[in-house]
Measured scan of single mutants.
Amino acid sequence: LKGVVVAGGVLAGAVAVASFFLRNKRR
């Protein structure tokens, strides 16, 4: 169960970083 929580956190972080980079590329 702990691994699932960690994986979810990593996935959420990756999505946040990806969206951040996409926003920067638009400018």
Rank of each mutant, 00 (worst) to 15 (best):
A16V: 04
F20T: 03
S19E: 08
A16W: 14
G8I: 14
L22Y: 05
A7P: 03
A16I: 04
A16K: 06
R23N: 09
S19R: 08
V17Q: 01
G9S: 12
R27E: 08
A18N: 00
L11N: 00
K2C: 07
L11F: 09
R27G: 14
R26I: 12
A16D: 00
V17S: 01
V15S: 02
A14H: 08
A7D: 02
V15H: 05
G9N: 06
V5K: 06
A14N: 01
G13N: 08
A12D: 01
F21A: 04
S19C: 13
K2T: 06
L22E: 01
F20G: 03
A18G: 03
F20V: 09
F20A: 07
V17H: 01
A16S: 07
R26K: 13
R26H: 14
N24D: 04
L11C: 07
G13M: 06
N24E: 04
G9V: 07
G13P: 01
V6T: 10
G13H: 07
V17F: 10
L1Q: 01
A12I: 12
S19I: 09
V10M: 09
V10R: 06
R27T: 15
N24W: 11
V10I: 11
V10K: 05
G3I: 09
V5N: 03
A16H: 07
V5F: 09
R26F: 12
V17W: 09
A18R: 03
G3W: 13
R27F: 00
R26W: 11
F20H: 09
R23T: 06
L1C: 13
A16Y: 06
V4E: 03
G9Q: 07
R23P: 01
V10W: 14
S19D: 05
F20Y: 04
V6L: 11
V17T: 04
A18F: 05
V10S: 03
V4N: 07
L22T: 02
R23Q: 06
S19V: 14
V5G: 08
V10A: 14
N24F: 07
A12E: 02
A18S: 03
V6W: 13
L1Y: 03
F21M: 00
V10L: 13
F21G: 01
R23C: 09
G8E: 05
A7T: 11
G8K: 01
V10E: 01
K2R: 11
R26E: 10
A7M: 09
V6Q: 08
L22C: 06
K2S: 09
L11G: 01
S19Q: 09
V4A: 14
G9W: 03
K25E: 05
L11H: 01
L11T: 03
V5R: 08
V4L: 12
K25I: 12
L22N: 02
V4C: 09
A14R: 05
K25F: 15
A14I: 14
F21S: 01
G3V: 10
V15L: 12
V6K: 12
K2Y: 06
L22K: 03
K25L: 15
L11P: 00
V4R: 11
G3C: 08
L11A: 02
A7H: 13
G13F: 13
L1E: 01
L11W: 08
R26L: 10
R23D: 02
K25C: 12
L1K: 13
G8S: 12
L22V: 05
L11D: 00
V10P: 02
V15K: 04
G8Q: 07
G8V: 07
A7W: 05
V17P: 00
A18D: 00
A7L: 09
V4D: 02
V6F: 03
S19F: 03
S19W: 14
V10G: 03
A14T: 08
V15Q: 02
G9M: 09
A7Q: 10
A16M: 04
R27Y: 14
V10T: 05
F21H: 03
